[in-house]
Write a protein that binds this DNA or RNA. Structure first.
Lengths: 135, 135
DNA sequence: CCATCAATTCAACATTTGTTGAAACGTATG
DNA sequence: CATACGTTTCAACAAATGTTGAATTGATGG
């Protein structure tokens, strides 16, 4: 991701209604939400929502598909991921301990993964190994 | 991190000059950069930079310390980390594979970690001590 | 203590950005 | 084909935001 794109994305997220929309879509998952439901969830007029959706879409943070009369919007996880990556690129002058907390925070990411299969032990080691053996 | 804070942070990053400042500080590492050098790096008047620095500082994205005549700014890695976490919270309705790419991207984070001296153990404790004894 | 340098504050201006209501569009259904 | 529904486009207005230059503060060194 290049600077202009990242800038557009951050500007898009830096507005209350748009941030709410993105959060709603992020938690909604790949299924997405219809424009109408979004307008209700965020509490703004549909005409206003449309404006913000266009902004978000143009910034690469959401995608849309038509389904009958409705237009369904969903989060563009790849775009979000790229954005995070742009922000933290070259983050620590070779001292991983500086940015490690950010990585850990995202790993924790609170996707309660069907609690049964949550293995206690090796997560830390696994993560380190994953970092140690790049492409 | 709560919504108003996140909103302030994204709004702060959604401005070309401020995004440049943050990127410059993120790559500069904990050492930071003096305001004068930043103004030069970003290419704006110092009076204008001051305005943006205040904005970023208020958003919890940078910190400052005085050093002689200069004021040194550095990235608030914890703030950045919290922001990323806020954005991706509850991201995948229990399907980790959705947000996994984001985690992987950040892990890749391109901090070429001077491969030799990567010690598994004490870094965490060291960091805690450093934080524990402020002025 | 005065001169100097680095950085910040302030007020005025210019620009960008968000909101609103009326009208238009595309899609389904009777 | 006419109607109803969900969504988007457009133009006008209102509000927030970025920039500039002059004046101020704080720290250093002769």
């Amino acid at each position: 991701m290049d600077e202009p794109q990242a800038l557009a994305a951050f500007a898009a997220l830096g507005q209350a209604h748009r941030l709410r929309v993105v959060r709603a879509l992020v938690t909604a998952g790949p299924t997405g939400l219809a424009a109408g439901l979004l307008a209700e969830a965020v509490g703004i007029a549909s005409t206003n929502l449309s404006f913000h959706l266009k902004e978000l879409s143009h910034a690469g943070l959401i995608t849309s598909r038509r389904e009958g009369k409705s237009v369904i919007y969903s989060a563009a996880y790849a775009g979000l991921s790229d954005l995070v990556q742009f922000l933290m690129r070259d983050c620590c002058q070779g001292r991983p301990e500086v940015c490690a907390p950010a990585v850990a925070a995202l790993s924790a990411c609170a996707c309660p993964p069907s609690p049964a299969r949550f293995e206690p032990g090796p997560s830390r080691r696994r993560r380190r190994e994953a970092i140690a053996k790049p492409p």
